[in-house]
Write a protein that binds this DNA or RNA. Structure first.
Lengths: 186, 186
DNA sequence: ATTTGCCTATCTACTGATAGGTAGAATCAT
DNA sequence: ATGATTCTACCTATCAGTAGATAGGCAAAT
């Protein structure tokens, strides 16, 4: 083995884990498969993440943090709501392009019943973050603000879900375009 | 045992199987658990459905057929688009109320990568059925008809997904109301 | 000397699937 | 009508494979 710079194993596990969950769901997340891709043994993953629930929660948490940064970036580079929403929908589009993956939280919501409580808690946090950001970007106020923001998030997640089922990004694009035409968001 | 009328075992397996898939996904479908609820042995399920893929495909097929009948019924009892859409969204709402379940096809789409081809084929048929029905009900024409219908289906599925994650039907209701207000459908 | 980060080896529980057997009903030829 | 055959719908027992998890060891870094 060449003297490579110290690879952060923990990070590698999270990277591989996220890829699996986005592609095949939390249930498909296997310590053995994960260990194989990372290049260590399954027992070693338990060193970093004692239980599968810990790993799942860490995945959801990191995902939310990454999203938070991405959202700040969008606010910085796009001045108006239309441009910001374009970048927002592109984030979900990116997952689809990247190996036909889904939003990590979307797929976790689908598997809710099998998920440890600590994972679900992180999922809720991600949703709350998205709703807050959308409320701000779309300038929503009043009692209907949250439902409206959630409607946008739901619609985009649904588009991702079905486009993924069809295995064609074009389905996602057309669906998003239809939302825009309908005036669901700018 | 009382002299009950012949219980159709095959039907019982499908009923129990559908409940599991809608609640916890295709991956959570276990021959042993299923056998326990039905009251037979797991090997006997293989008699009716040789492989798990066969069972999954049968579930999706029956689901599509049931939906087709429901759609016809809606057309018969509701004269206008608004009334029909109300009943349509209520179908998805019903799944949520019933033990916080999801649309069988929605949850199967989320698990696409793990699914046998024969199951996915049935999933596609279900989507096509819904798109065709929505196109008719909403009076959509032209090249944008299919994308628009798919957008409606996606939005409703997304609402179901997130409402289920939140564990609250009210989330679904508010999201659907937001769609209506936005003019996505009447 | 202790902690870190990995290892080997093993455990129990569960997965779908198969082989082979059987009670009872249906179908058949005589 | 009856005896023989075949089919139906289950059963028991078992398979190889995989799941997450644990105990204990070992080498390097601190």
């Amino acid at each position: 083995m060449p003297p490579e710079t110290k690879p952060d194993t923990r990070q590698a596990i999270l990277d591989a884990g996220q890829a699996v969950v986005q592609a095949r769901g939390y249930n498909a997340l296997s310590f053995r498969d994960l260990a194989k891709t990372v290049g260590i043994k399954s027992a070693s993953i338990h060193y970093h993440f004692p239980t599968k629930g810990d790993l799942g929660a860490a995945l959801a948490k990191r995902y939310t943090e990454t999203a938070a940064k991405a959202f700040e970036h969008i606010l910085a580079v796009a001045p108006d709501a239309a441009g910001r929403m374009r970048l927002y929908t592109d984030v979900f589009r990116g997952a689809l392009i990247n190996d036909n993956r889904m939003c990590l939280v979307g797929i976790m919501a689908a598997e809710k019943a099998d998920m440890p409580a600590e994972v679900m808690a992180e999922v809720e946090r991600f949703i709350a973050l998205n709703v807050a950001w959308l409320t701000q970007v779309l300038g929503l106020t009043g009692p209907e603000a949250d439902p409206k923001a959630l409607a946008v998030l739901s619609a985009i997640n649904g588009a991702q879900l079905l486009a993924r089922g069809g295995g064609d990004v074009a389905i996602y694009d057309r669906t998003i375009a239809a939302y825009r035409t309908a005036g669901l968001f700018p």
